[in-house]
Design a protein around this nucleic acid. Structure first.
Lengths: 154, 154
DNA sequence: CTCAGATAGATGTATATACCCCTATTTCTG
DNA sequence: CAGAAATAGGGGTATATACATCTATCTGAG
């Protein structure tokens, strides 16, 4: 059989374009982020920031290190992502008892902002649910969680 | 019934942390990107860049505008993401017949780099498949594609 | 043919992301 | 207890991402 390198390359490229988990996941993240961000626009915060506010709300005063573990984000990334929230006065960052640590907590304005954003988040989430159904949503969640743990525990 | 605002807030926050599609998708994208990037490290290119090389390979000489549509990426984002590839000499960017357009194409070194990276991509993809199974992979793809089209066609 | 509107990119700005290396602490070991 | 090892963050660097706005070019209506 004669080989046709060019054609073979092309087939493989197409296959990759259609089956790359990294590509589709990043693409979906871009799209879904835009969707939520657009809805959150009136609040002045973005989806990532809402995630962080929520995490702080749940974990109470918490160190950057611990937060980073929970949201599965690089420590330096998280520290930088916290800055806009700090600048807007939505969170407080102060040294902990262990002076190496920074303890993050929600300010009263931060709590208000969270409530405002949570309301809109509910609307965005409902739109997604309308389209995927609760079952589709559950499957998606299970799949993505699997992906996360797959890449974490190696 | 007496209301307990604080406790209610907390419950809602936890619910959001556990069910936010945007959060889980972004988290998965971070994890999977790190996974692929780590494997691709020896090649000197990253997963996003491999995606772009592949797209260029498939679409042949193509305008930035068209490419952006295909990969579902903002035009300005794409233009900036192409720069590292251009700097490394893996792609060529030149004016099209329509002088407003920039036409992107793969250089011979770019093709070589693509082949090298494709090989590694296959290994990464295989590891994912081992864990999710072909079926799980298909479901994941379907779910995420649904998410993309959901946010695109509104 | 001319000019108004549409289109493709480029640029400014801001956030998001991670790696590497450095510093300040803390903890552990001899 | 003193010095070594571990740990938490900070800052540098580079890429990834999008929106708003600007410029150059093209196209279509008159």
């Amino acid at each position: 059989m004669t080989q046709k390198p060019k054609a073979l390359d092309h087939t493989e490229a197409v296959k990759m374009g259609k089956s790359c988990v990294c590509f589709i996941t990043r693409k979906a993240a871009r799209c879904i982020t835009q969707f939520y961000d657009e809805m959150l626009r009136p609040t002045g915060i973005r989806s990532t920031q809402l995630t962080l506010l929520t995490t702080i709300k749940i974990l109470g005063p918490v160190s950057v290190k611990r937060m980073a573990e929970v949201v599965v984000m690089d420590r330096s990334t998280l520290a930088r992502n916290l800055k806009p929230l700090d600048r807007q006065g939505l969170i407080r960052i102060e040294p902990g008892e262990d002076l190496r640590e920074r303890i993050v907590s929600l300010t009263p304005p931060g709590l208000e902002k969270w409530k405002e954003a949570y309301f809109i988040w509910g609307q965005a989430q409902a739109q997604i649910k309308d389209r995927l159904g609760q079952e589709g949503l559950d499957t998606l969640f299970a799949n993505l969680s699997e992906l996360v743990s797959l890449t974490r525990n190696r």
